[in-house]
C-alpha cells in the first residue's frame, strides 16, 4: 500500500527546489535564481528559516575576552527541530539570544526568514520577535503581578481581537494542562507550572520559530512527556524549533531532530 504524505514532492522537484533555494540565499545566486528559475521573490528564502553566518560573540571576563559563540555557521530550515546539547557555560543561551535578536553579535550575521536581525531597526526587530518568535527561557520569565492569563496575553497586547486572543489562550492553557489556573498569579504556581505558562505564552502568537532554553528543566516526567508531545505536534504543523538543553534524551522524543553539541562556543554535529 502506498502512503502519500501530505506536501510530499517527487525527488527530482526536491532537488530542483534545493538548488533554487540554495542559490537564492547567495546574493548573486538569488538574482540568477529569480531570472532562470522564475522563482517569485516572496517565496525565496522561506525554506531556510534561520541562518547564522560566521557568528561570534565574546564577553569580557576578568579583563579577558572569552568567546561564548565562536564562528558558528548554521542553517535551519523551516519546520526543523534542532537540539543543541552542551554543558553550562558552553554558549548555548548566548546563541539563542543572538538568533532571537536579544543581543548583537561581535561578528557575523543572523538571518531570520531571510532578514538580517541587526540590519533591522529596533522597532522592526521587536515586530519580528513579536510575530515570528516564541521564547521559552531557562528561568520562568513571568511578570509576578500579572495573572496566568494576563502573562500569556502579553505578546498580543496590541491585538485587534482581544476576545479571540483570550479564547486562544484558554486552548493553549488546556494543552499545557493548566486550564483551571488562568486567574492564578505566578507565586501561586509551582516551578513546573510556571514553566508551562511560559511555554503557553511562547505559542500564543503562533510563531514560526520557538527558541527554547532548557524547556523541560523544572518539569516532572509526565509533564515533560506531555510538553515534548506538544512540541512534536507544533513541529509537525511547521513550527521551527531550536532547543538548547543538556538533556540528551530530548532529541529522541522528536521526529527527525537535528542534534548539535556546543563546547566553548563552538558548534559541532552531535555524535552518539
Amino acid at each position: 500500500m502506498v502512503t502519500i504524505q501530505p506536501f510530499s514532492i517527487p525527488d527530482e522537484l526536491a532537488g530542483y527546489l534545493y538548488v533554487t533555494f540554495f542559490l537564492a540565499n547567495i546574493p548573486l545566486g538569488g538574482i540568477l535564481a529569480r531570472i532562470f528559475f522564475l522563482v517569485p521573490k516572496k517565496t525565496m528564502g522561506t525554506l531556510v528559516m534561520i541562518e547564522c553566518r560566521e557568528l561570534s560573540k565574546s564577553y569580557l571576563i576578568e579583563k579577558k575576552s572569552v568567546f561564548a559563540v565562536n564562528n558558528i555557521n548554521l542553517s535551519i530550515n523551516k519546520g526543523e527541530f534542532v537540539v543543541i546539547l552542551g554543558h553550562s557555560g558552553s554558549g548555548k543561551t548566548t546563541l539563542l539570544s543572538l538568533i532571537g535578536g536579544l543581543t548583537s553579535p561581535d561578528r557575523g550575521q543572523v538571518l531570520v526568514a531571510g532578514e538580517e536581525n541587526w540590519q533591522l531597526s529596533d522597532n522592526a526587530l521587536s515586530t519580528m520577535r513579536n510575530s515570528r518568535i516564541g521564547f521559552i527561557f531557562q528561568f520562568a520569565s513571568l511578570i509576578p503581578t500579572l495573572t496566568v492569563m494576563e502573562n500569556i496575553l502579553l505578546p498580543l497586547t496590541f491585538s485587534r481581537n482581544p476576545a479571540g486572543s483570550r479564547e486562544m489562550a484558554r486552548d493553549i492553557l488546556s494543552e499545557v494542562g493548566l486550564a483551571d489556573r488562568e486567574n492564578a498569579f505566578p507565586s501561586q504556581l509551582s516551578g513546573g507550572q510556571q514553566r508551562r505558562v511560559a511555554i503557553a505564552r511562547s505559542f500564543i502568537n503562533r510563531p514560526d520559530i520557538i527558541l527554547a532554553d532548557e524547556p523541560t528543566g523544572d518539569l516532572d516526567e509526565e509533564t515533560e512527556r506531555d510538553i515534548l508531545e506538544l512540541f512534536r505536534q507544533y513541529n509537525a504543523n511547521g513550527t521551527t524549533f531550536v532547543v538548547v538543553t543538556h538533556n540528551s534524551n530530548l532529541a529522541a522524543t522528536q521526529k527527525n531532530a537535528r542534534v548539535f553539541s556546543m563546547r566553548q562556543g563552538v558548534l559541532s554535529a552531535h555524535t552518539i
Binding site: 515586530t127 520577535r129 513579536n130
Partner: peptide
C-alpha cells in the same frame, strides 16, 4: 530588579522601546 525584569520580558515578547 522586578521592574527591570518586566521591561526585559516585554522587550523579548516584542514590545517596542517606544511602547
Amino acid at each position: 530588579p522586578e521592574e527591570k525584569r518586566e521591561i526585559a520580558i516585554l522587550k523579548v515578547l516584542g514590545w517596542e522601546t517606544g511602547d
